[in-house]
């Protein structure tokens, strides 16, 4: 068992464990932290697959920005385990069963797929200059469009989150 495989199993265990933590923990803040853990584990996977750029971008975007926003919102609303709405036992069991059935169906469908070895290290396609060349040559239009998407999402978020003028101002730092 070499380092690569060890790291794979380690990150996989962390990812799955943290993912379970996300859905099982009662406190939303804990969920967020577990999700951060999952994302870090996934970034670790990217690292060992030598996709360094994506790994760092994953950290910066997901854990550094998106999850902070989640945490932000949860803190603003002061959500904790006490106010967490809970579903009935039956619904939860049904959710687990249907999710599990979906998993089993998909596994059963692909379990015969011929395993191909992941060429872990020898290829530098995940490095930033290779990625950048393709991104700015072949995907320049999607890139530009996604920037427009970003802009519109930003404006949309501002418009949605804008206070109605009738309401008194609330302290929100967003």
């Amino acid at each position: 068992m070499n380092l690569y495989d060890t790291l794979f199993w380690f990150f996989s265990a962390v990812a799955v464990g943290c993912a379970l933590g996300v859905i099982l923990s009662r406190n939303p803040v804990n969920s967020v932290l577990f999700l951060v853990g999952t994302f870090l584990a996934i970034s670790g996977h990217y690292f060992i697959m030598n996709a360094q750029f994506l790994a760092i971008v994953n950290i910066v975007v997901y854990t550094g920005a998106i999850m902070v926003l989640f945490l932000f919102v949860i803190m603003l609303m002061n959500l904790n385990a006490d106010v967490e709405p809970q579903k009935g036992q039956l619904i939860q069991v049904a959710g687990v069963i249907s999710g599990g059935v979906l998993f089993l169906v998909l596994i059963a469908a692909i379990h015969k797929a011929s395993p191909m070895p992941i060429d872990k290290q020898s290829i530098d396609i995940g490095l930033i200059n290779n990625l950048g060349k393709v991104l700015f040559k072949e995907y320049v239009l999607p890139f530009e469009i996604s920037s427009v998407l970003f802009l519109s999402a930003m404006i949309g978020a501002v418009v949605i989150g804008k206070k109605e003028p009738a309401l008194p101002a609330e302290g929100e730092a967003q």
């Binding site: 579903k87 619904i91 049904a94 959710g95 249907s98 999710g99 059935v101 979906l102 169906v105 998909l106 059963a108 469908a109």
Partner: peptide, 21 residues
């Protein structure tokens, strides 16, 4: 919304089952 997601997942399972098996 929860029940909608439920139905969606069940539908997905059925579709996958049909298409794969």
């Amino acid at each position: 919304v929860g029940s909608y997601i439920f139905i969606m997942v069940i539908g997905m399972v059925i579709l996958f089952t049909i298409s794969f098996f």
